[in-house]
């Protein structure tokens, strides 16, 4: 029994380590879900061609959600912001044309040091953006 206990005690740390990563450098190219799945969670299409107005609405929505803007670039179509509320949440939103009549809006979030891959926060973000845009956010496959 004592031997078993000892074995257990020796094994525990390896279980603990098993929950974490082996090499932190792997994070450079790491994604936990498939690229396609993440892209679909993070992307919506809007029926508008007005890129500038869309970017301005994204900025306003971020401010409504308690963000301070970090960067914005109209030509590139990107906006980044940070929310601090006992945690650090960074969000980057990009806008690019899709076909002749639509714009594709993609958001990706980082919570402290973890990529957000849960669909719910993105649904909430797009729900807020939808309201501000007065347009429906279409799911994209």
């Amino acid at each position: 029994m004592k031997k078993l206990l000892l074995a257990g005690l020796l094994l525990t740390p390896s279980f603990i380590v098993g929950g974490c990563q082996t090499t932190s450098m792997n994070q450079v190219m790491e994604t936990s879900q498939s690229q396609v799945a993440i892209r679909s969670i993070q992307t919506r299409a809007f029926d508008t061609k007005d890129k500038t107005k869309t970017l301005r609405t994204i900025i306003a929505t971020l401010q409504d959600l308690g963000f301070v803007i970090d960067k914005a670039d109209e030509d590139l179509g990107t906006v980044s912001g940070t929310k601090l509320d006992g945690y650090q949440l960074r969000l980057t939103v990009t806008v690019r044309p899709r076909g002749e009549k639509q714009l594709l809006v993609r958001a990706n979030a980082t919570y402290n040091v973890t990529a957000v891959e849960d669909p719910e926060p993105y649904n909430q973000f797009f729900a807020a953006l939808e309201k501000a845009m007065f347009l429906t956010a279409h799911q994209v496959d």
Partner: peptide, 24 residues
Amino acid sequence: LFILPMFCVVACVQTIPKEALQLR
């Protein structure tokens, strides 16, 4: 011995608060 590793694994994952991107 069983429970300990679970705690440790949880410590490695941080999840976003539910209301973080919700309009208050």
